[in-house]
Amino acid sequence: MSSAGGALIVTLLTLTLIKSTPIIYAALGGVISERSGVVNIGLEGMMIGGAFTAVLFSGMTGSPVIGIIAGIAAGALLGFILGFAATVFKVDQIVAGTGINLVAAGGAAYALTLIYNQPGASPQVSALGNNFWILVAIAFACAALLHGVLYFTPWGLRVRACGENPRAVHDAGLHPLRLRLYAVILSGALAGLGGAFLSIGEVNIYSDGMTAGRGFIALAAVIFGRWTPWGATGAAIFFGFFEALQYVLQGHISWLPADAMQALPYVAALFAIAGLVGKVRAPAADGIPY
């Protein structure tokens, strides 16, 4: 193998890890939410909320760590809104999630103009720089943690039961709605962290449309990963690979134009959900209000 080819592969793998990370966070958020029985279409919006708020607070305090924490909090807040709507008002979760996405996207754009007086993108703020690798590692730690919580703790057992038959959870003297609310808040926090990684991990600004449907790709990763933390993580890496591939190939393959390659991760997600042909089973009460 030529050293140029070797370097290319190293670049590709490195980039895959980086591009996968925000999708992993959001996909783990999708897993915890759906295992509790709430479909979280709002992941995209929660990523936007996390990405923008992280920039805002990092810019205000000069501390990217505070930015990250603020991003997590913003995602959790949006998660609370969706969770509250889904449990207390028993809303249509798809419609509500779509609402969350519009609110977050519009809100970020509104605030960009209002706060920075520059539509489209924020000014540069202090970001994680090379420390962003810590967040890459934490993504995998989160997957391991979520796996442990879901499969080995009482709370995890209850959450899984809640996604299958909330009535049984209620009959066991527990509170299915509370479990779902906590799960969706956690889901939002994870998506918010994924968004914060995008804005002050990978780069150092927020720009409109920077999440580019990663929240939706994360949903596909949840399905592709069969609603398990490690499965979703693997699927997120799969989609991250195609995103990385697009960057790596751009300089090297002339017959495939860059614009067309931008479609790669989305097409991969389409194939992934279509290729499952009824072999998967979602949690039985997923998306059904209790």
Partner: peptide, 18 residues
């Protein structure tokens, strides 16, 4: 029956009092 199909027998019985 108000059971959780994808959990095991003992998990169903002990749910909430694990």
């Amino acid at each position: 029956f108000q059971l959780v199909g994808r959990l095991s027998v003992w998990q169903n019985v002990m749910l909430g009092r694990e």
